[in-house]
């Protein structure tokens, strides 16, 4: 008999497409959470493939902290135009202005925590019953136990000890009124898988991922981009370096890496030999050992 094999990337793709199609059928009003990072770009790419030649049957939701890199916003708008998707923006700035959330103050001030309230508010306003996210299990230890279909109660909370068992490819999206699901189609991808696949598929990415010259300064062992929105201590000196982003979040909490990887092939080479996790540069994860689990319980991405 002939040996039928597909590569691990093709198998991961098939699994993710299957999950995306389940979401379109099991929920009435899904939305794809788009951050502008490579994982959500991958998600959009997979969604385009899953429903081809029809359009993606759900809108994209971007929670804009107002602290994004300008490159992220430009890239987002171009992408949305190209695929003809609807974009919804939840604005943290607006939420601060109308008093829904309060801004942190001081040197390590970040709007990361404020995103959760704005996200939950946006989901509620749009009456979305499933929010698709690009989280991966290899990213962080609390995410290693996340399901593909992750149930959230009416407050958007995650209960890690009471998760539904998930077997074979049977996904249970049953819920009560007012509850919703977070769905993670790329759960089984690793950082290297994502890069290999993006290279293989020739997917366009924001310039921030490629090595470029930028003014940076060091704080707690992490390089941060120089920007008026981060308050610097007198001792923190600005220097120009060749850097790139491994993850893209807010300018306030996304560390940049010294790197010469200015092509996707060089990035894959770098990723496959690096000895630090990609979230190692995220100051939001460093607040405590269980900061991701704590934030996820409250409804973070």
């Amino acid at each position: 008999m002939m040996n039928y094999n597909i590569s691990h990337l093709k198998e991961l793709e098939a699994e993710s497409i299957y999950v995306l199609r389940e979401v379109a059928n099991q929920f009435e009003n899904p939305v794809l959470m788009f951050s502008g990072g490579k994982d959500s770009i991958l998600m959009v790419h997979l969604a385009v493939k899953a429903f081809y030649p029809a359009k993606i049957p759900f809108p994209l939701l971007h929670v804009d902290t107002g602290h994004n890199f300008p490159e992220t916003i430009e890239f987002r708008d171009n992408l949305v135009n190209r695929i003809g998707a609807k974009l919804i923006v939840g604005s943290v700035q607006e939420a601060i202005d109308n008093g829904m959330v309060h801004e942190e103050k001081g040197f390590n001030a970040s709007r990361n925590g404020l995103q959760t309230a704005v996200l939950l508010d946006s989901l509620e306003k749009g009456k979305y019953d499933a929010a698709l996210g690009g989280a991966r299990r290899d990213e962080e230890k609390a995410r290693a136990k996340e399901r593909f279909f992750s149930h959230r109660d009416e407050f958007g909370q995650w209960d890690p000890k009471n998760q539904r068992p998930e077997l074979w490819n049977l996904f249970n999206g049953q819920k009560h009124f007012g509850e919703h699901f977070r769905v993670f189609p790329i759960s089984n991808w690793t950082e290297l898988d994502v890069w290999q696949y993006l290279a293989y598929e020739k997917v366009e990415l924001p310039s921030l991922y490629y090595a470029h010259k930028r003014n940076v300064f060091e704080r707690d062992g992490v390089l941060l981009a120089e920007t008026p929105i981060i308050q610097r201590r007198d001792t923190e000196q600005v220097i120009e370096k060749n850097v790139r982003c491994r993850t893209i979040g807010d300018m306030t909490c996304t560390g940049v890496w010294e790197s010469d990887a200015d092509t996707i092939e060089k990035i894959i080479q770098e990723v496959s030999t690096t000895r630090m996790t990609e979230r190692g540069g995220r100051t939001d994860d460093k607040r405590s050992e269980t900061s991701m689990e704590d934030r996820k319980k409250q409804g973070y991405f």
Binding site: A144, K145, E293
Partner: peptide
């Protein structure tokens, strides 16, 4: 991975781990 597991020193849930060699993922 979960806080309660770390406190009790036991694995409660299914945890997924990933590694790759040149031959397989």
């Amino acid at each position: 991975g979960l806080k309660s597991e770390r406190e009790q020193g036991i694995t409660i849930d299914v945890a997924y781990r990933y590694f790759a060699t040149p031959k397989r993922k």
